[in-house]
Design a protein around this nucleic acid. Sequence first.
DNA 1: CCCCTCTTTGACCTTTATTGACTATCTAAT
DNA 2: ATTAGATAGTCAATAAAGGTCAAAGAGGGG
Lengths: 142, 142
Amino acid sequence: MKRSLADRIEQYLKVLIERSEDKRIEIQRSELAETFCCVPSQVTYVIGTRFTEAEGYFTESRRGGKGYVRISRYYLENGVSAGHKELLAFIDELLQEDALSADESDLLKHLISYAFQDMPPEDRRRLFKQLRNVLVDYVNLD
Amino acid sequence: MKRSLADRIEQYLKVLIERSEDKRIEIQRSELAETFCCVPSQVTYVIGTRFTEAEGYFTESRRGGKGYVRISRYYLENGVSAGHKELLAFIDELLQEDALSADESDLLKHLISYAFQDMPPEDRRRLFKQLRNVLVDYVNLD
DNA sequence: CCCCTCTTTGACCTTTATTGACTATCTAAT
DNA sequence: ATTAGATAGTCAATAAAGGTCAAAGAGGGG
């Protein structure tokens, strides 16, 4: 798989975060840019698109001398989950359309809310998408 | 019988998938189009008509620079997946005990059979274990 | 021959990535 | 306090993919 510069920077940062003791790192934007031979705003782009709160990350920064960007991963703490709300909404739709019974939707919602909590957000997002597809498949079987 | 261009592209992709380690490939739409001397949307057509979920495939894509189309085949055969059989058996138990309705167990079995098939085996094993635990929770709610 | 379905093509659209000029905010030295 | 230098942020332009859709073409069965 050929990966873009943004992908490589993302990967690099995620490895650093996972290796860190407290799932938190501090980098210098311009230094990282130099490492990857790109403009500094590329780093900002990567952080802005791949380390969002929706994905379970929290970032802070400081400008000026000795500036830094800090990225913390927090997804294990809160129940914040990627795509969770959307999937629940979709199940509600199916319920409205009588494609699922109340019992079935209850069961699904319970599973979705409790069974996938400690997965990395990217994996969960993928899984939820797939779950949705398979659900569509299922309700169309009749 | 003369095979159409669409047929040949389909064949080509399926060979690649079967040869791949994890039954998953990533291609670039425009590159493949060039290989077959056709317009890129032809590739979209092939994927849309021959790699559907009903046929056991799951696709994802990304636009923009270094974009890709990923096609995964999920394993419709039962024997190969870790913990699959056990989880299905467990659901049957719950059904016997009237802890789940027939509709609910059908839904679950369908999800289990189709939604988690392209995960790495260890992840799936872990997920199934957790799924089982959450199910136990659920049926004990009453 | 006519009709229906599947295929092929291309014009136009949306999303994602990359870059750089300009701006805002710190720190530290004076 | 002022100011110079060092960082990081913003934003818009451009490039690089993939998606959509409708129209035209190609075959096959009646």
